[in-house]
């Protein structure tokens, strides 16, 4: 197989590629974070006039909260915030398809490229 000669990339092209990758990081990862689109799916229960007992804390727990500088009022939100593990089947299926599809694409496309690599390195005999 004839050896592949890649084109030379100029400075402008290299700068463009570098900026593209930076933009990709900021658009797909940073923006959802700062816009509050991601993060722990939690719910918080409101407790009127919270006490350690009402918050389900025993004597030792209450003592440790107080060592940390908390009162029942300031600790209430931390104690009553819980993850919501209700499963949305559509979201679960979409997520599974995205991850499986991604790996299938990676393996298939990599194999196509790998065949070129092996053909050039060892010669093509099949």
């Amino acid at each position: 197989m004839a050896k592949y000669s890649p084109p030379k990339q100029g400075k402008a092209g290299q700068v463009f590629d570098s900026l593209f990758l930076l933009a990709l990081v900021y658009i797909t990862l940073f923006a959802p974070l700062v816009l509050g689109l991601t993060g722990g799916g939690t719910t918080t229960q409101t407790v009127d006039q919270p006490t350690w007992e009402a918050l389900g804390q025993n004597e030792v727990m209450a003592k440790q909260w107080e060592h940390l500088g908390y009162t029942p009022e300031t600790a209430a939100e931390l104690i009553t915030t819980r993850f919501d593990y209700t499963i949305n089947p559509v979201a679960l299926i979409v997520t599974a398809i995205v991850i499986i599809g991604y790996f299938v694409f990676l393996i298939r496309f990599s194999d196509k490229e790998y065949r070129q690599v092996i053909a050039e390195r060892f010669g093509k005999d099949k």
């Binding site: 797909t28 990862l29 694409f105």
Partner: peptide, 21 residues
Amino acid sequence: FLGYGAQLLAMMAFYIVASLW
């Protein structure tokens, strides 16, 4: 996915676009 599903999809979007590039 339990609690951080949106972030999981954001991460996948990053790697999918980078792979296409």
